[in-house]
Design a protein around this nucleic acid. Sequence first.
DNA 1: GTGGTCTAGACCACA
DNA 2: GTGGTCTAGACCACG
Lengths: 123, 123, 123, 123
Amino acid sequence: MSVDFKISKSIFLQISDNICNQILEGTLKSGERVPSIRDLAADFEVNSNTVLRAYTILSDVGVIENKRGIGFFVTEDAKQNILERNKAEFFKTDLPEFINKIQLLKLNKADLKDLSDIVESLN
Amino acid sequence: MSVDFKISKSIFLQISDNICNQILEGTLKSGERVPSIRDLAADFEVNSNTVLRAYTILSDVGVIENKRGIGFFVTEDAKQNILERNKAEFFKTDLPEFINKIQLLKLNKADLKDLSDIVESLN
Amino acid sequence: MSVDFKISKSIFLQISDNICNQILEGTLKSGERVPSIRDLAADFEVNSNTVLRAYTILSDVGVIENKRGIGFFVTEDAKQNILERNKAEFFKTDLPEFINKIQLLKLNKADLKDLSDIVESLN
Amino acid sequence: MSVDFKISKSIFLQISDNICNQILEGTLKSGERVPSIRDLAADFEVNSNTVLRAYTILSDVGVIENKRGIGFFVTEDAKQNILERNKAEFFKTDLPEFINKIQLLKLNKADLKDLSDIVESLN
DNA sequence: GTGGTCTAGACCACA
DNA sequence: GTGGTCTAGACCACG
């Protein structure tokens, strides 16, 4: 695997996002072991400390947990945990900022047709 | 004025955004003088170098212009200028990311009712 | 049995403490056989090397002894032995640290009523 | 300053404890700047990453906060914050374990006279 | 000057 | 084998 990291965001955050997304998508399931720090560092071609940092953060927020000497495992409530955090962040920050931009830029309905269509197609 | 800067974004960028927003809102009009670097630094309780950096960027993109010895002034086409830049940025980055988040978080119509209402009320 | 090990202390130490406590409580008596390494490893869901390490330590300090091919047994003077070691450790380390904490946290008599009652009820 | 760190505990934890204790003692007051990472690293003769780690933890728990480009400062509610955390930990873990040890070791009143005296002298 | 990120690598305890 | 700590040092953005 060769991964391109964005320059605008810390690598360790991109790694933790990557793990979270795999959990949300179902690629990684509760109880499953995530790759060892060394393996993931090799895959991503980064320093193992960088992966460790990502894993430490995910541990702190209860998405993965360490079984000593064995590795890190996805927690039971990882998925829900991630969704809750991300939703809270979305409604607190992303949505207001987005609405603010719409109004500041004086966009019109036509500009946002794609968005409307997508929202309309939701449950 | 006591301002809370976000940790995730450079202060000088937040300051230049602030000026741009004031121009978009009409608080600052073409031809008007923007606050002196010293005053704004005092207001925001930041280093004056930080304000200078924000003003330099705004000068570079033609939103304000320096009249030596007098101060910085909002250019004639500042508003238009900002709108163009921000719109391009919005459609290239903000909108796709926003849509992506909606889908990752599996939000439903009800979650986004506020947004829909606002979009619906546009021209 | 499913046991929660603390993260702050080695598992093998927690296992040896567990055995010692059972001896102090009388659950395990002198001359009795302690669980086989395999059984205990299965009970605790740990690697058998980890149990072996705990047993090795307990053997070294004369709390259990190995009868080759049969298993580990509680020694005659296990209880006495443990008490002496633990008391020495208690007065040298635990008690001073505990007192220090009481003072740092500026606790009052009411906070420590439970403790006082227990101490008062001793011989 | 030459500091002796205990081998049984991570240096970065001992550093964060050290800062907390200075705050509890009043040596460091709310709003004051804590030493720069580099300075403290030099004082303690450790790597600056080690100090950074200590400071990061203290930031995460709201004991200090970063003013970008300037340094770390003790938060308004640092003292209360530390006391609350430590007290919660004390009543949840330290006290029960301590009481448990008293009983397991079958200590008597005489053994704990010092402790009793200290408790008795509290408010 | 400040802190923040990342690397390379040593060393350790633990399972 | 696993992760955890620490070091030394480079490089960066920011104020």
